[in-house]
Every structure is written in structure tokens, then in C-alpha cells.
């Protein structure tokens, strides 16, 4: 199982004065069970890219294969693709609309054509997975706190049992604890359900801590693609395109510059701690 993008390009407003090429010949392979982070400055093409992965946007040129099948083929079921590749938008809580939390989460599976019973079962499971406390199930979603609303919105996508979960900045606007809770939840699902997870983020620290592979986007192209340690080695190049490395990566560079024989390219607090302690052994 995999998603393959072959030379995918996309242009907004083609043929008009506002024409803007948002993706330029993007070629990527996303394997089953990967945990990927996508970073890039505002307008680098991240959101356009992820909306191609579930067929919400159609490439101007190039092909996309989901499990070996071209999604632009005529008899390909795009509706089904959208349930298998679940997309959680930025500020997903703005899309809550039902009278209770439970009904809101049922909406996805009902739309998929499941009966009330099955939809209900899926909603229960999704709400439990997303860590929403049971006492909130029959409350209006608008009464919940920001972090809880976001969990409900994520549950709404989980209820469709996607194989791939894509989240566009799931922690924007949350407090530090809320940030950790949502990211731990996502990492937990990746681990226990073997779900493929794609996380779009502006936080280099979060990406470094959680994902296995980072895709860096710049001007509609893949600028770098690799493990966090590899990618953040290029911090000078990242700065040129409006990004940066985690604080600790800069600290390690600073220590090296001060002539300390420190090894490794730490990208997380834990890694930095281990390398520094080794100096003092």
C-alpha cells in the first residue's frame, strides 16, 4: 500500500491574470505506516499538496497512484478515496455543526452510507480513540474548550476509519499541554493502528520530536526529504526559505563552534541531553 505522486503540477487560476503555480513537478512516494511531517513557509504549497492526496484538488498534469491505481482514471471511486485518506483541516473545530458531539462524529459514517447503528458504533470508537471524555458525548460541541473541540473534529475523521490520516497544523492555537496531548494522540494512533500519518506543521520542535521523515516544501517543489537529523543539518538552507531548525540544533552548533568535541546533530531535547552528558563522562 502506498501513495505515489508522479510529476504532479497544479496551477491556481490557470489562464487568468492571477495564475499562480502552486505545485511544480512533485514526485513523492509515501509508504504504508509512515509518520511524515511536511514543513514549509506560508504559501510554499503544503496545503495544496495534501489536498491532492485525497483527490480534493485535481492536478493539472502528472499522476497520482493510490495502492497502484491511478486516481484520475474514470472508474476510480474518489468518494471512497476520501474516506480512506482522511483529511483534518486547519482549525477543524470551525466545521463542527451538529447539536451534540456524538451526532457530529456520526455525520461522516452516515454520509458513507452506514446505518445509524454502525455509524454510532464507529462514532463511539472514534471518540474513545481521540480521548474525548464520555460525559461530553451529548453536550453541544460549541460548549467545549478549544482542545476538546479539536479532538471531536479529529474523531469526526477517525470515524470514517481512514488508512491514511492527514492533519493540517493540528496544534495551531493550542496551549503547550494541549499541543503535547494532540501530538501524543496522533503518535499513539500511528503506533497502535499502524496508520499512515502526515502532519503539516509550523513547529520545527514538534516535527523533530515526532515524525520519522520530513518533507520540506518551497515554491511548490520538494526542497528536502529525509529523516529529521538529515534535514535539520541543512539549517542554513532552511533559513533561506523562511524556516529554521529546532533550538537545540542551534545550541549543538554553538557548542561545536566553542570547540567542544560534541557528537551528533541533535534535533530534540532528549538527543541533545544524551550528547552533552557524553562529554562529561
Amino acid at each position: 500500500m502506498s501513495i505515489i505522486l508522479n510529476n504532479v503540477s497544479f496551477t491556481y487560476g490557470e489562464g487568468t491574470a492571477y495564475e499562480m503555480q502552486a505545485l511544480k513537478n512533485v514526485t513523492l512516494k509515501i509508504d504504508d505506516g509512515e509518520f511524515i511531517g511536511i514543513i514549509g513557509h506560508t504559501g510554499s504549497g503544503k496545503s495544496t499538496l495534501i489536498q491532492h492526496l485525497n483527490g480534493l484538488m485535481k492536478a493539472v498534469s502528472g499522476e497520482i497512484y493510490f495502492n497502484g491505481r491511478d486516481i484520475y482514471e474514470e472508474d476510480f471511486d474518489l468518494r471512497e478515496l476520501r474516506t480512506r485518506v482522511g483529511l483534518v483541516f486547519q482549525y477543524p473545530e470551525h466545521q463542527l455543526f451538529e447539536t451534540t458531539v456524538f451526532n457530529d462524529v456520526c455525520f461522516g459514517p452516515m454520509n458513507q452510507g452506514f446505518d445509524k447503528n454502525e455509524a454510532g458504533l464507529r462514532a463511539f470508537e472514534a471518540l474513545r480513540m481521540a480521548g474525548v471524555p464520555e460525559k461530553l458525548y451529548y453536550q453541544p460541541p460549541f460548549d467545549l474548550s478549544g482542545g476538546q473541540k479539536r479532538r471531536v473534529a479529529i474523531a469526526g475523521v477517525l470515524a470514517m476509519k481512514p488508512e491514511v490520516l492527514i492533519l493540517d497544523e493540528p496544534t495551531a492555537g493550542l496551549d503547550p499541554k494541549g499541543r503535547d496531548e494532540i501530538l501524543d494522540l496522533i503518535a499513539g494512533m500511528h503506533k497502535s493502528k499502524k496508520m499512515t500519518v502526515i502532519l503539516v506543521s509550523h513547529s520545527m520542535e514538534d516535527v523533530a520530536k515526532y515524525v520519522q521523515r520530513i518533507i520540506v516544501m518551497d515554491e511548490g517543489q520538494v526542497f528536502l526529504d529525509g529523516a529529521p537529523r538529515e534535514v535539520f543539518k541543512y539549517y542554513k538552507e532552511l533559513e533561506k526559505i523562511g524556516l529554521c531548525a529546532p533550538e537545540v540544533t542551534y545550541l549543538m552548533e554553538d557548542l561545536k563552534a566553542r570547540g567542544m568535541a560534541i557528537d551528533g546533530d541533535a534535533t530534540t531535547v532528549e538527543e541533545a541531553k544524551q550528547s552533552i552528558l557524553k562529554l562529561f563522562q
Binding site: 503547550p176 537545540v248 541531553k273
Partner: peptide, 19 residues
């Protein structure tokens, strides 16, 4: 439910480890 800057957290962890 808050945090500290990464440099502060690292310093705190290193101090706990005996530096």
C-alpha cells in the same frame, strides 16, 4: 499546562542529571 523554552528545559534536564 504550560511549558518552558527548549533551552530552559534542556538546562533543567542536564541539571537533574548532575551538571
Amino acid at each position: 499546562r504550560l511549558d518552558v523554552p527548549q533551552a530552559t528545559l534542556l538546562a533543567y534536564e542536564l541539571k537533574k542529571a548532575g551538571l
